[in-house]
Design a binder for these strands. Structure first.
Lengths: 347, 347
DNA sequence: GTGAAAGCGCTAACAC
DNA sequence: GTGTTAGCGCTTTCAC
């Protein structure tokens, strides 16, 4: 008993108990072939006996793998309070779905996500430093603003990274995304089919590619149906912004009878305003949302919406990252998912 | 240029460029005293020049500190699907607030949270292994079920951990919590003050201490106001369960004119049902929620609710954990926060 | 199939 | 005030 009983057992301890060398223990721990069956048993018993768990730092030091990745939520950092950004994003059911998808994929791979928020220059540097230090093998980036400088910084530093959603300006980096235009088209077609004649939309922040795409897709589809003009009110993907946008729409276009909101949270806000003004949904105005996240079910009427397979997308994003980590030279790839219409009660 | 340019620079590289020893570089990196001003400058320049970032694994190996903690969401694991648990909890705005509070505190301490879900025996073992390996210095536990075996396992393994909320059965472990009874009392007093004569409550899952406390506090306060009996419908802290509970309450007690829901999500569900049955809120029935999380604002009328300072509690939880990490012998401590009534429109 | 030994990059005594 | 040196616990050639 040379080491104090408080220190965790090491490979050495196991080796001594099993009567073999460190190398052999290492081999059985890492499942390498070329170890005698019987010795494997003995070693495993010894591991059990001393309660051995391989030290990650020591392992990382030689393998050059952290076994963790950074899951970073990034924003512009132009807002007032710092904390509010983290609170808002982390409380968004959309992010919960992303995290859940990532966790689900990583779970079986033995890699763990470190949660980070990058909304200021300082915190952006933290993320970069974290990766350069080798604390994480790569980064998963969920960006909420267009002018996010993090993607290009990551590229410049040659750090493995994958984005959720196409970057605002083209860049050599992998990402997963949705065919937003197709999704918006689904919404447009439904609204027209429901007989709407005066259709409007509540868009997301227009500097974000996804918002632009949803808007473009919606307008194009409507044009094809013979409606050349679509009133639009810009929102910020929050319920409150959806309310404000709906108020504006109603004020300027009292005859509106169909609304496409670029996400469910804003649709939820719009619904509140519609009720307040005595408009029945879907009878007086049909409403369709986007995402199919939890608020869609927490509304009355329940939201008809465009489903985005967020969990699958997030899992794929994690998968792509692991590929890049394993094979540093891999060229960037993009994976686009298809949306689906979920018809419920609001349209 | 002995090492390939692809390998990250080490302390050695910096030392060579600065013309000093590794130890000196280490000293300035770690801000130790006893280094000549001028040499500090030189070293810092060299660090800048080679783009040095200290390797975490190497550092951890000697300091025996990972610089990360596990933020674990734990559940009973008795449910059907595994993924659904993660998705549900991570999408809950309540968890978003916890994460945000933790992140806010950790941000300046240079420690990072690793997100983990423990809802099965397997994943529970993962968490334990992660900590034993030294991959994280301690754990922050947000438990959603009463019979969670993780706390006692953590205690047995002598791993630093702090809980969000008191454990179901008394155990020598630190935690932060809210004075739930006081919060429920606030709700009861308000309802009575508003003139309600037939008050009911939608409780949380009754195996969870917080639910029990809110129920007890509510009943006791009402008893003091002269109301000996309070109808109760048990929910599961989700909007859907709130709807179901409200339906039951209405069916059995049509005359109800005041409802206290044990969280905002359930209050939101109750509101929907109340509207459906033509009950005006707050005129016909006054409704008060609990938490003051985002759904409280996304309702019409906006929810009057009992505010729980979740972010502060989470930050304190993180702070307690760091204390335990720094001083292993520290006895368990509990910190109880006070709730506050937020009066809006629903009561 | 197994062991010996080098070394990953860093910190912390300990000398000077 | 600064350098030397001995590990931290592990993986991985390289011999045997």
């Amino acid at each position: 008993m040379s080491r104090p009983p408080t220190a965790p057992p090491t490979l050495e301890d196991v080796a001594r108990v099993a009567g073999v060398s460190r190398a052999t223990v290492s081999r059985v721990v890492n499942g390498t072939r070329n170890v005698d069956r019987r010795i494997q048993e003995v070693v495993r018993a010894a591991i059990e006996e001393v309660g051995y768990a391989p030290n990650r730092a020591a392992r990382s030091l030689v393998t050059k793998r952290a076994g963790t990745i950074a899951l970073v939520v990034s924003g512009s950092g132009e807002q007032g309070e710092e904390d509010s950004f983290a609170a808002r994003v982390l409380s968004d059911p959309f992010f919960g779905r992303v995290a859940s998808g990532v966790l689900g994929f990583l779970r079986t791979r033995g890699v763990h996500p470190v949660l980070m928020v990058a909304d200021t220059e300082r915190t952006r540097e933290d993320v970069l430093a974290f990766l350069r230090q080798g604390s994480a093998d790569g980064a998963l980036l969920v960006s909420t603003h267009a002018e996010d400088p993090l993607p290009s910084r990551l590229i410049d530093a040659k750090l493995p990274a994958v984005l959720f959603a196409r970057p605002a300006r083209p860049a050599p980096i992998s990402y997963v995304d949705l065919d937003h235009q197709a999704g918006a088209r689904l919404a447009a077609d439904l609204l027209v089919e429901r007989g709407c004649r005066q259709v409007a939309t509540i868009s997301g922040p227009l500097d974000v590619p996804a918002s632009q795409d949803r808007l473009t897709g919606f307008r194009d589809a409507l044009a094809r149906h013979g409606f050349p003009y679509v009133p639009i009110a810009e929102g910020g993907f929050t319920a409150a912004s959806g309310e404000a946008a709906m108020e504006r729409l109603l004020a300027e276009h009292p005859g509106v009878d169909g609304v496409f909101a670029a996400n469910d949270l804003m649709a939820q806000g719009a619904l509140l305003v519609l009720h307040k003004h005595g408009r029945r949904v879907p009878e007086d105005v049909a409403l369709v949302g986007f995402d199919d996240s939890s608020p869609a079910l927490a509304c009355r009427p329940r939201l008809t919406t465009v489903r985005q397979p967020v969990e699958d997308m997030a899992a794929r994003m994690a998968s792509l990252l692991l590929d890049h980590v394993d094979e540093p030279g891999l060229p960037p790839r993009s994976v686009i998912f298809e949306p689906a219409l979920v018809v419920r009660e609001s349209a």
